[in-house]
């Protein structure tokens, strides 16, 4: 999974049948210090996440496995809304 920040959402006019009624969020990937890295991507919302919230999202088919069949064609899914992140600085020192 990776951390992300919800930037917004996309609304589709023409779409794959299985995407109907799904909320598609624009998410900016974040590193462990909540700094953005890489480009924003689109993930299906499964947690009712709101704009600006920090979330966790899973990549790949696993994103939609828990949804009822037929699974929508989606490769990123929000599966947690983050309350806190605890990072231990010295745990990252270069040499043991």
């Amino acid at each position: 999974m990776i951390l992300g920040k919800i930037l917004g959402a996309v609304v589709l006019s023409k779409m794959d049948e299985k995407l109907k009624g799904k909320t598609l969020l624009i998410v900016q990937p974040l590193n462990e210090n909540e700094q953005p890295f890489g480009k924003p991507l689109i993930a299906i919302d499964m947690m009712g996440a709101g704009f600006g919230e920090t979330i966790l999202m899973v990549k790949g088919k696993e994103a939609v496995l828990r949804l009822p069949e037929p699974h929508p064609p989606i490769d990123y899914g929000v599966n947690a809304i983050v309350d806190d992140i605890f990072i231990v600085k010295e745990a990252k020192k270069r040499k043991e």
Partner: peptide, 11 residues
């Protein structure tokens, strides 16, 4: 392992 994440609202 460099940390952990707390998420009450989750899968």
């Amino acid at each position: 392992v460099i940390g952990n994440v707390v998420a009450t609202k989750k899968e």
